[in-house]
Amino acid sequence: MEILSYDFMQRALMAGIMVSLLCSFIAFFVILRRLAFIGVGISHSAFGGVAMGVVMGINPIFTAALFSILVAWLIGVVSKKGQIHEDAAIGIFFSAAMALGVALISLSHSYNIDLFGYLFGNILSVSVEDLWTVGILGAITLLTLILFFKELLFISFDEEVARVSGLPVELLNYLLLILMALTIVVSIKVVGLVLASALLVIPAATGYQLARNYRLMLAISLLCGVSSSILGLWLSYQYDLASGATIVLCSTLFFFLSMIFSPRQKLIGRLIRSRLG
């Protein structure tokens, strides 16, 4: 418990728990709607926004939020119009946004900013102000998700029938993309934008392996997210490892364990049967 005697560790733990709760909740829809690649796209393109903030002297988190929402919207518009496939749209936008970020940073000649922190997270440098940002943005996102939960679930299960029954499917799809963008921006401080998309996938993928009901899947996703965050932070403190990477690796470990015990994979059953001959 010595670990909690430091203020910065207390703040890191609070940020870690809040971000992992938020990410695991939205990951539930990312897995059910198969949006994992969009998650990767939005998180990487946040780099363009970070660079803009740095160049313009504005808090990079806010420019990253605007930029990610813009890219999420563009991906949605371009792929909806059917001019190019969604995966191609994501590939183009996220690499272009990252390239823009690198170009802007090279223009600004300001090498003193903590680029590594934005890319891979620096949870130990979370300030009280950061905690407020995470808390407020996180609360708005979480509340919106809860309020639109049944509609988003319907669209995830059967978009066409949802549309026929009168749901504003397009609007809800954009809403989900915007919430994903906000979640990614909020998690930059904890795991960095390169690894943020991992938290948008792995906890819910773990829940998906173990549960046959969405409520249980969501509960496992939240539990897995928060546990990886706490365990990852403790391990990174104990062994002096990069915190964001350790959290993601813990989450991956839970996922592999879930694969072994998954009723979907039936690995244990197959192993026992093969042993018994």
Binding site: L153, D158, A162, V164, N213
Partner: peptide, 29 residues
Amino acid sequence: HIGYVPQKSRFDPRFPISVYDVVMMGRVC
């Protein structure tokens, strides 16, 4: 007032949802 039953192939059989929750979707709107 419109009820729609699509072709079976559209549905993902691994979606973790119970029969009750699927039918409740008819009430969402």
